[in-house]
Design a protein around this nucleic acid. Structure first.
Lengths: 107, 107
DNA sequence: CCGCGTGGTATACAACGTATTCTTCGGAGC
DNA sequence: GCTCCGAAGAATACGTTGTATACCACGCGG
Protein backbone atom coordinates (compact mmCIF):
# COMPACT_ATOMS: atom_id res chain seq x y z
CA UNK A 1 0.00 0.00 0.00
CA UNK A 2 1.38 3.35 -1.09
CA UNK A 3 2.79 5.54 1.60
CA UNK A 4 2.03 9.20 1.92
CA UNK A 5 3.87 12.11 3.40
CA UNK A 6 2.53 14.42 5.99
CA UNK A 7 1.12 17.01 3.62
CA UNK A 8 -0.20 14.41 1.23
CA UNK A 9 -2.21 12.87 4.01
CA UNK A 10 -3.63 16.21 4.95
CA UNK A 11 -4.65 16.87 1.38
CA UNK A 12 -6.28 13.48 1.15
CA UNK A 13 -8.24 14.15 4.30
CA UNK A 14 -9.17 17.63 3.19
CA UNK A 15 -10.62 16.37 -0.08
CA UNK A 16 -12.67 13.85 1.84
CA UNK A 17 -14.08 16.65 3.96
CA UNK A 18 -15.37 18.76 1.09
CA UNK A 19 -19.06 18.23 0.98
CA UNK A 20 -20.14 19.10 -2.52
CA UNK A 21 -17.36 21.23 -3.92
CA UNK A 22 -14.25 19.12 -4.06
CA UNK A 23 -12.18 21.58 -6.02
CA UNK A 24 -8.56 22.47 -5.51
CA UNK A 25 -9.20 25.91 -4.19
CA UNK A 26 -11.79 24.73 -1.71
CA UNK A 27 -9.29 22.27 -0.41
CA UNK A 28 -6.72 24.98 -0.22
CA UNK A 29 -8.99 27.25 1.75
CA UNK A 30 -9.89 24.44 4.09
CA UNK A 31 -6.27 23.67 4.74
CA UNK A 32 -5.31 27.25 5.34
CA UNK A 33 -8.22 27.77 7.65
CA UNK A 34 -8.00 24.57 9.65
CA UNK A 35 -4.48 23.24 9.40
CA UNK A 36 -2.73 26.36 10.51
CA UNK A 37 -0.39 26.63 7.59
CA UNK A 38 -0.14 28.56 4.37
CA UNK A 39 -0.63 26.56 1.23
CA UNK A 40 0.49 28.04 -2.04
CA UNK A 41 -1.27 26.95 -5.15
CA UNK A 42 1.89 25.49 -6.59
CA UNK A 43 2.45 23.34 -3.55
CA UNK A 44 -1.08 22.01 -3.65
CA UNK A 45 -1.19 21.20 -7.35
CA UNK A 46 2.15 19.49 -7.18
CA UNK A 47 0.85 17.35 -4.38
CA UNK A 48 -2.38 16.59 -6.19
CA UNK A 49 -0.39 15.40 -9.17
CA UNK A 50 1.69 13.14 -6.99
CA UNK A 51 -1.34 11.71 -5.26
CA UNK A 52 -2.87 10.97 -8.61
CA UNK A 53 0.35 9.34 -9.73
CA UNK A 54 0.01 6.98 -6.80
CA UNK A 55 -3.60 6.28 -7.65
CA UNK A 56 -4.91 7.75 -4.44
CA UNK A 57 -7.03 10.43 -6.00
CA UNK A 58 -8.47 11.15 -9.40
CA UNK A 59 -10.49 13.89 -11.01
CA UNK A 60 -12.55 14.84 -13.98
CA UNK A 61 -12.33 18.15 -15.72
CA UNK A 62 -15.39 20.28 -15.28
CA UNK A 63 -15.86 22.24 -18.55
CA UNK A 64 -16.58 25.47 -16.83
CA UNK A 65 -18.27 24.61 -13.60
CA UNK A 66 -18.76 27.85 -11.79
CA UNK A 67 -17.78 30.78 -13.95
CA UNK A 68 -18.10 33.30 -11.19
CA UNK A 69 -15.27 35.33 -12.53
CA UNK A 70 -13.39 33.82 -15.39
CA UNK A 71 -14.83 30.37 -15.87
CA UNK A 72 -12.25 27.71 -16.52
CA UNK A 73 -12.01 23.99 -16.59
CA UNK A 74 -11.76 22.90 -13.01
CA UNK A 75 -10.74 19.62 -11.51
CA UNK A 76 -13.47 17.92 -9.59
CA UNK A 77 -11.47 15.87 -7.13
CA UNK A 78 -12.24 12.49 -5.69
CA UNK A 79 -10.31 10.13 -3.46
CA UNK A 80 -10.06 6.61 -4.80
CA UNK A 81 -10.80 3.53 -2.77
CA UNK A 82 -7.12 2.97 -2.29
CA UNK A 83 -6.74 6.55 -1.22
CA UNK A 84 -9.29 6.02 1.50
CA UNK A 85 -7.54 2.88 2.63
CA UNK A 86 -4.22 4.61 2.82
CA UNK A 87 -5.73 7.46 4.80
CA UNK A 88 -7.38 5.03 7.19
CA UNK A 89 -4.18 3.10 7.69
CA UNK A 90 -2.26 6.26 8.44
CA UNK A 91 -4.89 7.40 10.85
CA UNK A 92 -4.90 4.10 12.68
CA UNK A 93 -1.18 4.20 13.23
CA UNK A 94 -1.26 7.78 14.40
CA UNK A 95 -4.12 7.19 16.78
CA UNK A 96 -2.19 4.31 18.23
CA UNK A 97 0.75 6.56 18.93
CA UNK A 98 -1.13 9.55 20.21
CA UNK A 99 -1.54 8.00 23.62
CA UNK A 100 1.78 8.92 25.22
CA UNK A 101 0.83 12.51 24.59
CA UNK A 102 -1.69 12.91 27.34
CA UNK A 103 0.47 13.57 30.37
CA UNK A 104 3.72 14.19 28.44
CA UNK A 105 5.84 15.68 31.12
CA UNK A 106 9.28 15.58 29.56
CA UNK A 107 12.07 18.07 29.93
CA UNK B 1 6.76 26.58 15.82
CA UNK B 2 8.90 24.07 14.00
CA UNK B 3 7.17 21.77 11.60
CA UNK B 4 7.77 18.08 11.44
CA UNK B 5 7.45 15.52 8.71
CA UNK B 6 5.41 12.39 8.92
CA UNK B 7 8.18 10.14 10.18
CA UNK B 8 9.54 12.77 12.53
CA UNK B 9 6.19 13.03 14.21
CA UNK B 10 6.00 9.30 14.61
CA UNK B 11 9.44 9.22 16.18
CA UNK B 12 8.49 11.99 18.55
CA UNK B 13 5.41 10.11 19.60
CA UNK B 14 7.28 6.87 19.93
CA UNK B 15 9.83 8.40 22.26
CA UNK B 16 7.04 9.75 24.41
CA UNK B 17 5.59 6.26 24.65
CA UNK B 18 8.69 4.58 25.98
CA UNK B 19 8.13 4.10 29.63
CA UNK B 20 11.53 3.80 31.18
CA UNK B 21 13.84 2.87 28.36
CA UNK B 22 13.85 5.73 25.89
CA UNK B 23 16.71 4.44 23.77
CA UNK B 24 16.98 4.47 20.03
CA UNK B 25 16.57 0.79 19.57
CA UNK B 26 13.54 0.62 21.78
CA UNK B 27 11.98 3.32 19.71
CA UNK B 28 12.91 1.44 16.61
CA UNK B 29 11.33 -1.74 17.85
CA UNK B 30 8.20 0.09 18.86
CA UNK B 31 7.89 1.66 15.45
CA UNK B 32 8.45 -1.56 13.60
CA UNK B 33 5.97 -3.37 15.75
CA UNK B 34 3.22 -0.77 15.83
CA UNK B 35 3.61 1.49 12.87
CA UNK B 36 3.67 -1.20 10.24
CA UNK B 37 6.87 -0.16 8.59
CA UNK B 38 10.49 -1.16 8.58
CA UNK B 39 12.86 1.28 10.17
CA UNK B 40 16.55 0.92 9.49
CA UNK B 41 18.95 2.20 12.07
CA UNK B 42 20.38 4.76 9.70
CA UNK B 43 16.95 6.20 9.00
CA UNK B 44 16.17 6.54 12.65
CA UNK B 45 19.45 8.14 13.70
CA UNK B 46 19.27 10.61 10.88
CA UNK B 47 15.83 11.61 12.02
CA UNK B 48 16.90 11.85 15.64
CA UNK B 49 19.65 14.21 14.62
CA UNK B 50 17.24 16.38 12.72
CA UNK B 51 14.80 16.49 15.58
CA UNK B 52 17.57 17.51 17.88
CA UNK B 53 18.64 20.19 15.44
CA UNK B 54 15.15 21.63 15.69
CA UNK B 55 15.28 21.49 19.44
CA UNK B 56 12.42 19.02 19.69
CA UNK B 57 14.35 16.29 21.44
CA UNK B 58 17.58 15.99 23.36
CA UNK B 59 19.59 13.25 24.96
CA UNK B 60 22.38 12.45 27.28
CA UNK B 61 24.96 9.81 26.69
CA UNK B 62 24.70 6.88 29.00
CA UNK B 63 28.23 5.60 29.67
CA UNK B 64 27.26 2.02 29.24
CA UNK B 65 23.67 1.68 30.23
CA UNK B 66 22.74 -1.89 29.49
CA UNK B 67 25.78 -3.87 28.45
CA UNK B 68 23.80 -6.93 27.54
CA UNK B 69 26.15 -7.80 24.79
CA UNK B 70 28.83 -5.24 24.12
CA UNK B 71 28.05 -2.25 26.29
CA UNK B 72 28.41 1.07 24.58
CA UNK B 73 27.45 4.63 25.19
CA UNK B 74 23.78 4.90 24.46
CA UNK B 75 21.60 7.93 23.96
CA UNK B 76 18.93 8.31 26.57
CA UNK B 77 16.31 10.24 24.64
CA UNK B 78 13.89 12.86 25.84
CA UNK B 79 11.38 15.08 24.11
CA UNK B 80 11.73 18.76 24.94
CA UNK B 81 8.85 20.95 25.94
CA UNK B 82 8.73 22.40 22.47
CA UNK B 83 8.77 18.90 21.07
CA UNK B 84 5.68 18.06 23.04
CA UNK B 85 3.98 21.22 21.86
CA UNK B 86 4.75 20.46 18.25
CA UNK B 87 3.45 16.94 18.63
CA UNK B 88 0.26 18.20 20.25
CA UNK B 89 -0.29 20.77 17.54
CA UNK B 90 0.16 18.18 14.82
CA UNK B 91 -2.17 15.83 16.58
CA UNK B 92 -4.83 18.48 16.93
CA UNK B 93 -4.78 19.30 13.27
CA UNK B 94 -4.92 15.68 12.26
CA UNK B 95 -7.76 14.88 14.61
CA UNK B 96 -9.66 17.77 13.13
CA UNK B 97 -9.26 16.32 9.67
CA UNK B 98 -9.92 12.72 10.49
CA UNK B 99 -13.66 13.27 10.53
CA UNK B 100 -14.43 12.97 6.82
CA UNK B 101 -12.99 9.49 7.04
CA UNK B 102 -15.88 7.77 8.74
CA UNK B 103 -18.26 7.08 5.91
CA UNK B 104 -15.78 7.83 3.12
CA UNK B 105 -17.60 6.37 0.16
CA UNK B 106 -15.65 7.81 -2.76
CA UNK B 107 -14.86 6.14 -6.02
C1' DC C 1 -8.54 44.96 -26.76
C1' DC C 2 -6.65 45.59 -21.91
C1' DG C 3 -6.38 44.47 -17.32
C1' DC C 4 -7.99 41.67 -13.51
C1' DG C 5 -9.26 37.65 -11.28
C1' DT C 6 -9.57 32.71 -11.36
C1' DG C 7 -7.82 27.93 -12.42
C1' DG C 8 -3.99 25.50 -13.75
C1' DT C 9 1.16 24.35 -15.37
C1' DA C 10 6.30 24.34 -15.14
C1' DT C 11 10.45 24.73 -12.93
C1' DA C 12 13.61 24.74 -9.40
C1' DC C 13 15.32 23.90 -4.91
C1' DA C 14 15.14 22.82 0.07
C1' DA C 15 13.77 19.48 3.47
C1' DC C 16 12.63 14.83 4.62
C1' DG C 17 13.06 9.67 4.37
C1' DT C 18 15.78 5.68 3.85
C1' DA C 19 19.40 2.28 2.66
C1' DT C 20 24.21 1.12 2.78
C1' DT C 21 28.50 1.15 4.64
C1' DC C 22 31.85 1.78 8.24
C1' DT C 23 33.68 2.26 13.01
C1' DT C 24 34.07 1.14 17.76
C1' DC C 25 33.74 -1.42 21.91
C1' DG C 26 32.96 -5.49 25.15
C1' DG C 27 32.38 -10.29 25.98
C1' DA C 28 32.86 -15.27 24.50
C1' DG C 29 35.67 -18.82 23.15
C1' DC C 30 39.52 -20.66 22.08
C1' DG D 1 45.53 -12.05 24.27
C1' DC D 2 43.69 -12.60 19.64
C1' DT D 3 39.61 -13.33 16.84
C1' DC D 4 34.80 -13.30 16.08
C1' DC D 5 30.29 -11.53 17.02
C1' DG D 6 26.75 -8.57 18.15
C1' DA D 7 25.16 -3.90 19.63
C1' DA D 8 25.21 1.34 19.30
C1' DG D 9 26.20 4.83 16.57
C1' DA D 10 28.28 7.91 12.54
C1' DA D 11 28.87 9.00 7.77
C1' DT D 12 27.45 9.03 3.18
C1' DA D 13 24.56 9.14 -0.62
C1' DC D 14 20.34 9.45 -3.05
C1' DG D 15 15.33 9.22 -4.07
C1' DT D 16 10.86 11.41 -2.52
C1' DT D 17 8.22 14.97 -0.66
C1' DG D 18 7.31 19.95 0.34
C1' DT D 19 7.08 24.67 -1.15
C1' DA D 20 7.85 28.96 -3.67
C1' DT D 21 8.03 31.60 -7.83
C1' DA D 22 6.93 32.53 -12.04
C1' DC D 23 4.23 31.66 -16.15
C1' DC D 24 -0.01 30.59 -19.33
C1' DA D 25 -5.10 30.62 -20.52
C1' DC D 26 -9.68 32.09 -20.44
C1' DG D 27 -13.75 35.16 -19.67
C1' DC D 28 -15.69 39.37 -18.18
C1' DG D 29 -16.03 44.47 -17.40
C1' DG D 30 -14.89 48.46 -19.32
Amino acid sequence: MAKVGEFELLVLLAILRQQDEPYANRVREDLEANADRTVTRGALYRTLDRLQGKGLIEWEIQPSGTPERGGHPMRRLAVTREGVEVARASRDVLLRFFDGLGRATST
